[in-house]
Deep mutational scan, measured.
Amino acid sequence: NITNLCPFDEVFNATRFASVYAWNRKRISNCVADYSVLYNFAPFFAFKCYGVSPTKLNDLCFTNVYADSFVIRGNEVSQIAPGQTGNIADYNYKLPDDFTGCVIAWNSNKLDSKVGGNYNYLYRLFRKSNLKPFERDISTEIYQAGNKPCNGVAGFNCYFPLRSYGFRPTYGVGHQPYRVVVLSFELLHAPATVCGPKKST
């Protein structure tokens, strides 16, 4: 009989979020998941679920829940969905086509923008091939755009693969920082350890 609540607040209220190319993952297990707390949290810009209804989450049990978190621009949030393409979905964070879970995003301009620009948040701009679902690539190898080998030196046709967002408070909404948490639900042939409040007695 599990009684402790799942530590969703640790994920959602973290002081610093990860850059999207180096997205953070927390495994959540052996706890009671009260999703209504999240669902009623006012400032969400997006709360979209795939393969599961957000209002039914509290009735369900899962083997594991993974909480992935990172920061992207407002106009990139739409790429955090199954079957998407674009710089983020291709080179930074890719969801599987059969994704079961929820994508939760909110504007973090007050936290993550600075006058003069916040350059701490990076994304991958160049990559030889697209990421596989949930693949994480933190390499900083110089990207070779031409035929000539770069030998690890940036220059003509040789690019550092990461780019900084440089968030400023005055940017338009599409270019403002958004914090994103992706909850993915794993249902294995194993005992369920993460259940909603109704199922955990």
Rank of each mutant, 00 (worst) to 15 (best):
G196I: 09
P161A: 06
V37K: 12
N75F: 07
P7Q: 07
S78T: 11
G155M: 02
S164A: 11
F134T: 05
Q144T: 04
T193D: 03
V32I: 06
S53L: 04
F134L: 04
F126G: 15
S200R: 07
A42I: 10
R16Q: 06
N120K: 03
A145P: 00
Y21F: 13
T55N: 15
S129E: 05
K56C: 01
F45N: 06
E10D: 01
H175W: 15
T170F: 11
S36E: 11
L60M: 05
S129D: 11
F44E: 06
A105I: 01
R73G: 06
V32D: 07
T140W: 10
V52I: 01
N4P: 07
A190Q: 11
I138L: 04
N118S: 00
S36M: 08
P54S: 09
T100V: 02
S200I: 11
Y119N: 07
F47Y: 03
S139T: 11
R27Y: 12
Y39F: 08
G155C: 15
K94R: 11
P169Q: 00
G196D: 14
K132G: 02
D59S: 12
L5T: 08
S36G: 01
D98G: 06
L125G: 15
L187Y: 07
L111T: 08
Y91W: 10
S184C: 08
N130K: 11
F160G: 06
I28Y: 15
R73E: 12
N24A: 15
V173R: 10
F45G: 13
V194F: 06
P149G: 12
V115G: 00
N4V: 05
S19P: 07
N13G: 09
Q84V: 10
L187S: 08
T201N: 11
H189G: 15
N1H: 01
A46V: 13
S36N: 12
A22C: 05
Y119F: 12
K199I: 12
T3V: 05
V194M: 12
R27D: 10
F134C: 01
I72L: 07
G117L: 00
K26V: 12
D97P: 03
A190W: 05
N64H: 12
F156K: 04
K56N: 12
S129M: 05
L187Q: 08
S200F: 11
S36H: 07
I142M: 15
I2V: 08
T140P: 01
Y66H: 11
S29Y: 09
G117R: 00
Y143C: 04
A145I: 06
G166R: 10
N87I: 08
T55P: 07
I28L: 07
Y171F: 14
K148L: 04
A22H: 07
F156C: 10
N1M: 09
S29G: 02
A105W: 08
A192F: 06
A154R: 09
Y39C: 09
N157W: 10
K128W: 12
Y39M: 12
G152T: 04
G116H: 00
G155V: 00
P43R: 07
N130A: 14
S200L: 09
R163Y: 06
V153W: 07
P191V: 06
E141F: 03
N75D: 07
P197D: 11
Q144G: 12
A192M: 01
A154L: 04
A42H: 15
F45W: 11
G196W: 04
Y119S: 07
V37C: 08
S129Y: 14
N120I: 09
D97A: 00
N40H: 03
G155D: 03
F134R: 06
T63C: 07
K199D: 10
T15K: 05
K56D: 01
F41S: 10
T63R: 14
N87M: 12
P197V: 05
K198P: 08
V194K: 05
T63Y: 12
L187H: 13
V194R: 12
G155E: 06
N109G: 02
